[in-house]
Amino acid sequence: MHEFTRSLLALGCAATCLGAAVPASARQGDITEPYRPGYHFTPDRNWMNDPNGLVFHKGTYHLFFQHNPFGNSWGNMSWGHATSTDLVNWKQQPVAIQQTKNADGVSTEDIFSGSVVVDKTNSTGFGTRKNPPLVAIYTSAYTAADS
């Protein structure tokens, strides 16, 4: 079975069998933050939007998503990153792709929707077949500050 197929099966099982798969300490009734979903990823803080990729790489799921790392509203478009080994418990990672700013701190490029893939054959040349890279492709939105 291909790794991608196993990932989809694991994701489907996590979505449909979650009640049985979640340890008692993590069940919905034990959530201490009333506005945080019990079984969906949310960043530790600040605004998030569209998921931009869920990939399984070397035993870990990587989730990338549109994110404002500086505030709780739309803006400073960057990509957040979180990892999990079970699709239930997530660890937020540093920002994956940061918005670009000029020397004055004004945004010159926002990072919008896209996707991430594992380049298993290393067709990009960014890694090796033994150590395949994660490759992100995204919409780059240049702002008026750059013109």
Rank of each mutant, 00 (worst) to 15 (best):
L63W: 08
Q28P: 00
A14F: 08
P51S: 15
T121A: 15
A96R: 06
R45P: 00
P43M: 07
G29S: 14
A96T: 01
A24L: 07
Q99M: 13
P94H: 11
F70T: 01
G75L: 02
A21N: 10
T16E: 11
K130S: 15
V22I: 10
H57N: 09
I111Q: 03
Q93S: 10
P69R: 10
P94C: 13
G127Q: 05
K101E: 06
G53M: 06
S84P: 10
Y35T: 07
A14H: 11
T100K: 13
K101Y: 02
T85H: 07
P34I: 03
T42G: 06
K101D: 04
M77E: 04
T83K: 13
N52M: 04
V117G: 10
V88K: 10
T16Q: 13
A26R: 15
K58H: 14
F41N: 14
N49D: 15
D30Q: 14
D50G: 11
N49S: 14
G114S: 05
Q92Y: 06
N76D: 14
G125T: 08
H57S: 11
A96F: 01
R27P: 00
N76M: 04
G114Q: 05
T121M: 13
R129T: 13
D86K: 03
Y61Q: 07
T16M: 09
D104Y: 02
G19I: 00
E33Q: 10
E109C: 13
K120P: 00
G75K: 04
H62C: 09
R27T: 05
D44F: 04
R36G: 01
N76C: 09
P51G: 15
G53T: 06
F64A: 04
Y39S: 15
E33Y: 06
C17H: 14
F70E: 12
D30W: 05
A20M: 12
F70G: 03
T16C: 05
Q28G: 05
Q93P: 02
Q93V: 01
H62R: 05
G53I: 02
Q66F: 07
G127P: 03
A20N: 14
T16Y: 03
N76W: 07
S123H: 05
C17I: 00
P43Q: 07
N52D: 08
N131W: 02
G19C: 03
N72V: 00
Q93Y: 03
T100V: 01
I97Q: 11
T128D: 12
N89K: 13
W79R: 07
K130Y: 06
R129M: 10
A96Y: 04
D44K: 14
P51Q: 11
V88Q: 13
V88I: 12
T121C: 06
N72S: 15
A15R: 14
D86N: 12
H57F: 01
F112W: 15
V117N: 06
L63Y: 09
A20Y: 10
M48Q: 11
T121N: 15
G29E: 14
K91F: 01
S25Q: 10
Q98L: 08
P132E: 08
P69E: 06
T128I: 05
P34G: 04
F112T: 00
S78M: 05
H81R: 08
N72T: 01
G38A: 15
R36W: 03
L54Q: 05
